[in-house]
């Protein structure tokens, strides 16, 4: 008994180390689970509150540039509203109430914390499940794609940026219509990489790259950026393309979270495909 106590006394420090280390590793494993655990929610709530306060102060310093950006976006929108167009053919969309069905709606949100200097970058938004934000929703900025919501609490949500090693986004070259996958190699936040873009159709520097719409979370035709340079990968028949992002992720301020009304329907269809595949095997 005495020996045991002496042993414990001598090595309590190692046990404490093991306990704390075990606890930390348990925290790390929580990150991967799909459903938000209460620990992570609590952490997000605390940091969300702090970030919100800091961001409120910070945002005063950028009022001018933000106004400029808003004016620019207003201009774009103004050019799209119907009053800017003259009706040329009268009998096409006359009784078209049932022709269009809304597929996407947008929730505006503000970025309250962000990183761009890590390998895996995230944004935190000031809207959460109370405002209708759910995991897997796409997030875009006025001039390009931002990422996907991964976790939400009542008032905040965490967005996996396209600057993340798990981010894979299907994109399309607007001119050639060829598609590829957008990834990020972790080097600079202004440049992304496209792989799997067939080299059978020649690329050009400056080509516009947009989302393909194959992803259920982000609509078609959202700007990604422009082709900066590219190399043909020998033996594969694919290009390796560097894309200059149209969004400056370091200055991101206001974003839109996208709600897809057809998501459950599309998900159901995808499940059918999985079942079919399983049956065939």
């Amino acid at each position: 008994m005495n020996n045991l106590i002496r042993f414990l006394r001598r090595y309590y420090y190692v046990f404490l180390f093991l306990v704390l280390e075990g606890l930390s590793i348990y925290f790390i494993t929580l990150n991967d689970s799909k459903q938000s655990s209460s620990i992570i929610s609590a952490a997000n709530n605390i940091s969300g509150t702090f970030n919100n306060t800091i961001e409120n102060i910070n945002s005063y310093f950028y009022l001018k540039s933000k106004n400029d950006a808003l004016v620019k976006e207003n201009l774009q929108l103004r050019q799209q509203i119907s009053s800017s167009y003259v009706k040329l053919i009268n009998n096409i969309h006359e009784e078209s109430d049932t022709v269009y069905k809304q597929r996407f709606s947008f929730i505006d949100a503000r970025v309250i914390s962000k990183t761009v200097n890590k390998r895996n970058n995230y944004f935190m938004l000031d809207k959460g499940s109370l405002s209708g934000v759910e995991p897997d929703m796409g997030v875009i900025a006025p001039n390009g794609v931002v990422g996907t919501v991964v976790k939400t609490t009542e008032n905040f949500s965490l967005v996996m940026s396209v600057l993340h090693q798990d981010s894979k986004l299907n994109v399309r070259n607007e001119r050639t219509k060829t598609t590829g996958t957008l990834i990020w190699n972790g080097h600079t936040y202004s440049t992304g990489q496209i792989v799997d873009m067939p080299s059978s159709i020649a690329l050009k520097k400056g080509d516009t790259v947009v989302t393909s719409g194959f992803s259920r979370d982000i609509p078609e035709g959202i700007m990604i950026g422009t082709v900066k340079d590219f190399t043909k990968e020998s033996g594969t028949g694919f290009y390796k393309v560097n894309v200059k992002f149209s969004v400056d992720y370091n200055k991101l301020e206001y974003v839109y979270v996208i709600k897809n009304f057809f998501k459950t329907e599309q998900d159901k269809l995808m499940e059918n495909i999985k079942e079919l595949q399983e049956e065939q095997q």
């Binding site: 704390l20 930390s24 348990y26 790390i28 620990i39 952490a43 895996n120 965490l158």
Partner: peptide, 24 residues
């Protein structure tokens, strides 16, 4: 030292998206 290191790590972790790495 151990406890304060742990608390320090957790505090930094709370503000980063991947929880636990700093604490560990």
């Amino acid at each position: 030292v151990l406890v304060s290191s742990f608390v320090l790590g957790v505090c930094i972790d709370v503000f980063s998206a991947d929880i636990g790495i700093n604490a560990c």
